[in-house]
Design a protein around this nucleic acid. Sequence first.
DNA 1: TGAAATGTAACTACTATTGTTACAGATATG
DNA 2: CATATCTGTAACAATAGTAGTTACATTTCA
Lengths: 141, 141
Amino acid sequence: MAANSQFSMAVHVLAILARYKDEKIKSEAVAGSVNTNAVVIRRLLGQLSQAKLVESQTGASGGTRLAKCPNQITLAEIYKAVSCGEVFALHGKSPNRDCPIGKNIEAVLCNLQKEIDKSVGEKLSQYTLQSVLEIIEQGKV
Amino acid sequence: MAANSQFSMAVHVLAILARYKDEKIKSEAVAGSVNTNAVVIRRLLGQLSQAKLVESQTGASGGTRLAKCPNQITLAEIYKAVSCGEVFALHGKSPNRDCPIGKNIEAVLCNLQKEIDKSVGEKLSQYTLQSVLEIIEQGKV
DNA sequence: TGAAATGTAACTACTATTGTTACAGATATG
DNA sequence: CATATCTGTAACAATAGTAGTTACATTTCA
C-alpha cells in the first residue's frame, strides 16, 4: 500500500464536496466514504486548500467546502495540487559523463519528461469536477 | 532513491546498445555508463529481454545486443516493458459503497486511468530509439 | 578444463505512503 | 463564558517498493 493514490483520493474527496456543495463537510464524514482515517483526509485537504480549491473552517460546526464551482475545477488542477510528481523519474545517480550516451542522456530524458507531463496535463484538463460528478451520479461509465 | 527510474535507465541502456549495435555489450560496461551496479543492469535487461527488445548470451564473451533495429523500437514499448505501473494509483482500500460517490468512484477513476495511460503511450510512441539516439549524439536537445 | 559472462536469489538500506495517536488552536452554541 | 466540536499538524509505526550489494549456479568460449 505504498503506491501514491493521492490523486484518486483527491478526486473522491472533491466529488463529495461538489455533491454536497451547499454544506460544510467534516473530515470524519469524508473519511467514512473514502474508507480511511480522518487525518489522512485532513492532510489531503491541506494540499487542496493551498491550491485554493477548498476552504476549511476550524472550530465547532466547522468543516470544508469547495472554494470554486465544480465546473471551474479541472482534473489537471487537482493533479497539480497533490503533486503526484512525474510520470517517470530520472536516474538516481548521475550517469557517467565520460560516456557519449551518459553525457547527454539526462537532458534528453528531462525534456521528454516535461513533454509527457504536459501531455497528461492536457488530457486531465479536458475534465472538470462537474463532469466527473455527473458521470459518477449517472452510475454508468 | 526510491523513485522508479527504470524507464530512464532502460532508455539509457538501450541507447548504448543502439550506439554499439554491432557488438555484444557486457552488463559491467553498461553499468559503468549508467553509474550503477551490474546486477541492477542485468535485472533491467531481463525485463527488456522478456519484451523481446534485447537478446543476451551467457558464458564467456557473452553479452547483450538489441533484438530489433533501433528505428523499430518505440519508447512506448520500452515503457511497457519495464511496466512503470500507472500514472496514478487507485485507492488502497475500497471506498464505502454505501455512499453515492464511493459506490461509483472506482469505476470512473479506473477508466480515467486507462485513458491517461493510453495518452502517455501515444506520446511515447512518437519516439523511436533511433530518434532518441540521434538527439543524444547531436548533443543538443 | 578454466576463465568469463549471464541469471537470479537473498539480504540490507533508503524512501515514500499510509495509518494512527495525541494535542494545540479555533469557533459555534448553549 | 465554558464547553463541546472540529481543524491543523507533529510524531511515530507499519508497509512496501526501489536500489545497491554479495554470492553463487549455470552457460559458453577458447
